[in-house]
Simulated scan of single mutants.
Amino acid sequence: MSEIGTIMRTSAVIPVLVIDDAAAARPMAEALVAGGLKVLEVTMRTPAALDAIREMKQVPGAIVGAGTVVTNEQFVQVMDAGAEFIVSPGLTERLADPIIASGVPFLPGVATAGDIMRGLDLGLTHFKFFPAETSGGLKALKALAAPFYQCHFCPTGGITEESAPAWLGFDRVLCVGGSWVASGTPAEIEAKARAAAALRG
């Protein structure tokens, strides 16, 4: 199983996917992977999410994780569905402890210095900066990252195709999360994925 840092370096953009119909999951994953985005985050915001993870896992080359995991029950469910990494919008010890103990790559959300210090206490150094834009944007992340030299981030929340290059230009940012790549026909999604994959240069 890969470490979270390796997963974050795999693609410049991690698609944040809200799937309402599991039947659409596999074609979407095929288009994203064909466009060069192999790391896929299926959010636990819909009843179709677990089936969507199972469908996307069948796509060769896809690294499929579960996002918006906020309870231990959800953690058990997504692991049973085959999730390869876990993303949460925040960080609590109750959620983090069993995830860390399992060894599955984990990317918890942080927005403050206290959040990051809690993560460091748990042995974590890779975080999702969320919600990125409404938490002060890139300027805030640079200020927040300064005391925590050992940490790296995946900003998510309000990131667009236009704003992503500036975020990716900060050396503490390994990737960004975004939903803009996941709309349209399979051909359109593949084209958006190809453009997003090229953002890192």
Rank of each mutant, 00 (worst) to 15 (best):
E93Q: 03
W180I: 06
S88Q: 12
P131H: 02
G119I: 05
E161H: 07
D115H: 07
A96C: 13
D97N: 12
F127L: 00
G158C: 13
K139I: 02
H126R: 04
M117H: 02
L168A: 13
A132H: 07
T156E: 00
S179R: 07
F129R: 09
W167P: 06
A146I: 02
P98W: 13
P98F: 08
E93A: 06
L122V: 09
G103H: 12
F130E: 10
C154D: 08
G169V: 09
F129D: 12
T112F: 01
D97P: 04
A143G: 00
V87E: 13
D115L: 03
E93I: 01
C154A: 15
M117K: 05
V181R: 13
L107Y: 09
F130V: 07
S88F: 07
E161C: 13
G136E: 03
P105N: 14
G177K: 14
E133Q: 15
D121M: 00
G103V: 07
G137E: 08
G114T: 01
G123A: 01
A166N: 12
P155V: 06
L91I: 09
F148D: 00
A143R: 04
G114L: 00
L91P: 10
L168Y: 15
L168D: 12
P165C: 07
C151D: 02
R94G: 06
T125W: 01
W167V: 03
F129K: 15
